[in-house]
Design a binder for these strands. Sequence first.
DNA 1: CTTCTGACA
DNA 2: TGTCAGGA
Length: 133
Amino acid sequence: MADIDPDTPVYSIGVVKEMTGLTRRQIRYYEEEDLVKPARTDGNQRIYSENDIERLKEIKELLANGLNIAGIQKQLGKVSELEKEKQKKQQKKDIEFADKLSKVSTKKLSSLYPVSNRADLAKLLNEEENGIE
DNA sequence: CTTCTGACA
DNA sequence: TGTCAGGA
């Protein structure tokens, strides 16, 4: 009922150590190699999410299959690169949305403020795209 | 007591 | 990769 989303960081390195079977040294080393990017808390403590746990398990698996760090970076991708791609996609969406918004607002809206409901705006944009007057 | 960073007998 | 130091 109250599942925490897999991106919410909650595990300390001690817990991760138990869950993954890796040593603290390895877990920190993989972070240095840009294979994982745990969040930080209060006193700079690392906190991992379930996604991070899975990520570490994959790394452990690949390592067991004979791959080195460089090989894993190519297989899973460096987290810094994954984040850049994610940011670019989001920026693209933002631009497209802003473009649609500018078009519809000049035609049908005298002001943007009246549209306080996101669902209404989405409907308006959809009608605009389908040529509904 | 646990975790953090830097360093290496 | 393990481990010790010196703090937080």
